[in-house]
Design a protein around this nucleic acid. Structure first.
Lengths: 132, 132
DNA sequence: TCGAACCATCACATACATGTGAGGGTCAAC
DNA sequence: GTTGACCCTCACATGTATGTGATGGTTCGA
């Protein structure tokens, strides 16, 4: 598929698809006329990239972890230098921190919303301060 | 405490503490001489801010959710306009997406690391391709 | 054959978090 | 009273992910 279709199917501006390519996150082939030609697999991949970017990972890191996640991963064993593994472990750590932080705050927001809704919804009886 | 101590205790450049204040994420009082005066509570708060920033939330959003998380939260009930609640729900959603994405990728990295380690560590017997 | 709808590259602009430094005040210790 | 370690307020610079537009090639249907 060409860039327009991929853009539409992933909800991503063309500009960014080209940017991700420049950052070597995705490497589409080219048609004879120079147009980018994207494989079906790129749909998922782009969505994954966007998710990781949104979660705070820079392209530099995403570029490193992406190849490790492809499923027939035997191919990538030889790339696994010690430094590379160390980087991955470091990122694993940061991701765990992020997950913990997000989860903590999400739970807190959820609780807040529940409490506020309880305070607004029920029949107007005796209520603690702040009630409507 | 003054800015230097807070910076050291949170591992945050002074520059950023002033920036967070400019963005109205933290509002220290001032001493007579104009120095910022930080309460003990700011230590946790700054750490929380940094965690959320690292997880991809912009200061604009952090500013909105922070006050909802303070524990004697009765004070903040009146701020809960419908638009505000909608925003919060939206952010809750995005945070859930982020958490899901991070968790998925973390698990995949973890699995990858396990497989690679298994491939490198054990006694050199018959092994699948890619072995050392 | 023309126009619309794609595609290409290039370049400049923006928002946001952050770095860095200049120019100057405060204060405690010597 | 001078020095050094703080603090202040600017203000300009950087990196990263984005927005936007100029300029031009390709394809295809009217």
């Amino acid at each position: 598929m060409r860039i327009g279709e991929l853009a539409e199917r992933t909800g991503t501006p063309r500009r960014l698809l080209r940017y991700y390519e420049e950052q070597e996150l995705i490497m589409p082939t080219r048609c004879a006329n120079g147009y980018r030609d994207y494989d079906e697999r790129f749909v998922d991949r782009v969505v994954q990239i966007r998710g990781l970017l949104d979660a705070g990972l820079p392209t530099r890191i995403i570029k490193q972890i992406l190849p490790c996640l492809d499923k027939p991963r035997v191919i990538h064993f030889k790339d696994a230098t010690p430094e590379m593994l160390a980087t991955l472990e470091g990122e694993l750590d940061r991701m765990n921190h992020r997950i913990a932080c997000l989860t903590r705050n999400r739970d807190a927001i959820e609780e807040y919303l529940e409490v506020v809704r309880q305070d607004k919804a029920p029949e107007p009886a005796a209520q603690s301060p702040g009630g409507r």
